[in-house]
């Protein structure tokens, strides 16, 4: 109990210190590095909050992919030279903004303390209905069955984000390969990692996907790991990404949400409600959707990190 509290306090203090470091940092690079460290501490905080599914996702997406995305962006901006900056607010304005933000924090903190006890929630409802989902992991049950619509829409949002990012490319290069090209490295640490890790990563991702039905894990975590492996190989210049015009690439991104929606519509035809799964086949159906969705989400996440096709020279 005491040990747990000590860990919590250390985590919270560390995370708070890093967050303050982020906004005090003079260089963007420092801020990003501190932010990544902050994300890793948060992943531990999620473990302490008994949210292992979220912890995995936070580590993989919140710290990992976001960190890579931001570092790569800073790298490209540093080479390009000019990042547009907006005017800083004056001293008085800054003080007022600071006071305003402090007020929001205090009000929010008070609200958190004033939440009703015992806490209302849906844990009992989930427990009572989990058997019908044929799944052991309640979070996966919520994501795929009770709130399947949110998951479906979110997968569609990722497709939309890829379209949005690609649409930001200049006309001259938009049909090229996503992101700035990286030179191939044949030896050195980057090549070592790029050759050694992906097989392990893929095994881990498939494992996490597979156990996700009954234990912490699932498609988002698996997809994030797969995306990270893809990015590693890409940064080492070992693979060429197909151009944005490539049909197989586009079909890969769209397949997961399209299949999910098709199954949802089949549920409408057979069972009379969108996203109603066929009785007795709930778990197999969900597993099929999760596998295809994981592949699509992984592709979308990796492409989102790579960014719009650009003609930047290699670093």
């Amino acid at each position: 109990m005491i040990a747990g509290l000590a860990v919590d306090v250390l985590l919270a203090a560390g995370s708070l210190g890093l967050a303050l470091g982020v906004i005090r940092a003079r260089r963007v690079f420092t801020a990003i590095a501190l932010f990544i460290a902050h994300g890793l501490l948060l992943a531990l905080a999620w473990v302490r909050l008994d949210a292992l599914d979220v912890a995995l996702t936070e580590a993989a997406i919140g710290a990992g992919l976001s960190g890579v995305l931001l570092l790569a962006a800073r790298h490209r901006l540093a080479r390009g030279g000019s990042e547009r900056t907006t005017e800083a607010p004056g001293r008085v304005a800054t003080i007022f903004i600071g006071l305003g933000c402090a007020c929001i924090t205090v009000a929010l903190g008070y609200a958190v303390l004033a939440l009703p006890k015992p806490a209302p929630g849906l844990a009992a409802e989930v427990a009572a209905n989990l058997a019908a989902t044929e799944l052991g992991n309640p979070v996966t049950g919520v994501l795929m069955v009770f709130r399947g619509l949110d998951t479906l829409l979110e997968a569609a949002v990722l497709v939309l984000a890829v379209i949005g990012v690609w649409s930001l490319a200049p006309d001259a290069t938009w049909r090229g390969t996503p992101g700035a090209p990286w030179p191939a490295v044949t030896d050195g640490p980057r090549a070592l990692l790029a050759r050694l890790l992906p097989p392990i990563g893929i095994v881990v991702a498939v494992h996490i996907l597979w156990v996700g039905a009954d234990a912490p894990g699932g498609k988002f975590q698996a997809a994030a790991i797969l995306a990270a492996m893809g990015l590693l190989v890409w940064f080492a210049g070992l693979v060429r990404v197909p151009p944005t015009a490539s049909w197989p690439l586009r079909a890969t991104i769209a397949a997961g949400p399209a299949l999910f929606m098709a199954i949802g519509l089949a549920g409408l035809a057979v069972e009379g409600a969108f996203l109603a799964y066929p009785e007795g086949l709930v778990k197999p159906t969900i597993l099929i959707v999760e596998f295809v969705l994981a592949a699509s989400v992984a592709a979308a996440l990796a492409l989102l990190v790579m960014g719009a096709p650009s003609r930047d020279a290699p670093p």
């Binding site: 829409l153 890829v162 399209a258 519509l265 969108f274």
Partner: peptide, 26 residues
Amino acid sequence: ATGSGLLPMLAVVLPVLAMVVALPLG
């Protein structure tokens, strides 16, 4: 649920599905 609930549901799902499928279609 009401029987007519299908209509607004399809009004949401069909455009989203079309958006997803539009990517490979070009």
